[in-house]
Amino acid sequence: MPRWGMVIDLAKCTACQACVVACQTENNVPCVPPEQAARGRIISWISVLPQLEGEYPRLTMRPTPLPCVHCDNPPCIRVCPVGATGINPEGVVRQIFARCIGCRYCTNACPYTRRMFNWYRPEFPGEFTEALNPDVSVRPKGVVEKCTLCHHRLQKARDQARAQNRELAEGDYIPACVEICPAGAMYFGDLDDPNSTVATLARGRRAFRLLEELGTKPKVIYLAQGEWSGGDGQGART
């Protein structure tokens, strides 16, 4: 049984936000109108967190692409009164849109603020409905939604592998955000397979997790930016 996880190399991330848009198109996430956006109601399952610190001219910014981190110990699933969210055996924290009563307890319990609520009925102006992905249901108003790690892609990849009579191989199943990343800063795979890229990277010295101290055990792992430390060939080390 795989345990899906993601590794994001912050040294390579260019803060371009292609992952954000790719996720939205893949998962039928509507664009909220401007006045709603101004009220902070943009729905994006993955966002780039700027994290600006310091004062001019000694500033640092660590843009961090942040999807749901799919905790192994997710604070959100405990609090849902109707069990509309849960963690499946492969470690994916999922949301059952059809069962959610919209109490938003999970959104508040999530220390990463990575759960989104449908404040209104999703709007797809004009022919934007034509661009909807049939693999993903369009959520009604009033329910909570979140990153599914593009679960529909896993199902497709499984079906395809089964049709070809083989095991699921690394790279068969990749979420839309990882797939699009122009800098190749995102990796995805089975954390339990010690030879997978993600597992190898997650063991490295640069690996860290966000809000690790909360004991949520996230499966989205970051690689520290590191610093340039002279041209002696050691520059890439942290």
Binding site: T14, C16, P182, A183, W228, A236
Partner: peptide
């Protein structure tokens, strides 16, 4: 833009053993 981002990622590819400043 994407070609530049790819170059940027290459500058910071740990496997290459060095980092471009």
């Amino acid at each position: 833009p994407v070609a530049v981002m790819r170059a940027f990622a290459r500058w910071r590819d740990v496997a290459s053993g060095r980092r471009t400043k």
